[in-house]
Design a binder for these strands. Structure first.
Length: 225
DNA sequence: ACCCAGGGTCATA
DNA sequence: TATGACCATGGG
């Protein structure tokens, strides 16, 4: 994971897709809810669940905590794992309320906030980093299945590295810039949705093949015809 | 009918 | 530490 490779990939994706304006949410709290609901779930179904919460006037910390679990589960049904995610949302919202809310958490150092989020049952590394980056604008790089696939397809990693290894790899190879990390992760997802629908780990992805070809040419033959 | 999606936890070895 | 089972819905 060299800095040059990471910068080059970002450049390719940004030139092709442009800015993505992430996270698709109106408020930081909506980001957090979406981060839990999207666990192993297609975003389209998450949108339906969030719309249900909005229409029930329940998209707030206090409302989520106060709702009976079965009712909350019913509202988020489209996002799948409904009973599990209902508990996770309530765990997260209890944590937010007990911590004094977003304003208090904003004063935490990034590492402290990350540890606090990870202490919530149902919030793992990726969900915590989604929240850190997209709700709190902290320069934390989000690693997901798409990121692994793309790096593997580019031959930059073996694919079985731990979450933390990959995260620190990105953070060490790039400027510690939340706006950059925001775009980068969003572009990876955008690219994956456009070109990596088929399973074979992005190996047949036309853009990546073009990019790999382009890189090979740059390296071997900078002044190609 | 099958595969999978912007994961995480828990039990077991 | 490292697998496996489990959670559940909707789209392709």
């Amino acid at each position: 994971m060299k800095s040059d490779d990471l910068r080059w990939i970002f450049e390719q994706l940004f030139n092709r897709y442009g800015p993505q304006h992430w996270w698709p949410a109106e408020t930081p709290f909506e980001v957090m809810v979406g981060a839990v609901l999207t666990q192993n779930t297609a975003w389209l179904n998450v949108e339906r669940a969030i719309n249900n919460l909005k229409q029930a006037d329940s998209l707030s910390c206090q409302q989520v905590v106060d709702l009976p679990p079965a009712e909350l589960a019913e509202l988020i049904r489209p996002a799948g794992y409904l009973n599990l995610k209902a508990k996770r949302l309530q765990n997260l919202c209890r944590f937010l309320l007990e911590s004094g809310g977003e304003s208090t958490l904003s004063s935490y150092k990034t590492d402290e906030l990350r540890q606090a989020l990870l202490s919530v049952n149902g919030v793992g590394p990726e969900t915590a980093d989604d929240i850190l980056l997209y709700a709190f604008q902290r320069p934390v790089f989000v690693i997901d299945a798409y990121t692994r696939r793309i790096l593997t397809a580019y031959g930059l990693i073996a694919g079985d590295e731990s979450y933390e290894v990959l995260r620190s790899g990105f953070e060490a190879g790039l400027p510690l810039d939340s706006a950059l990390f925001n775009e980068y992760h969003a572009l990876i997802v955008k690219h994956a949705k456009n070109h990596c629908r088929k399973k074979p780990q992005c190996a047949g992805c036309s853009l990546i093949e073009r990019c790999q070809q382009g890189r090979a040419n740059e390296a071997e033959e900078p002044t190609a015809t």
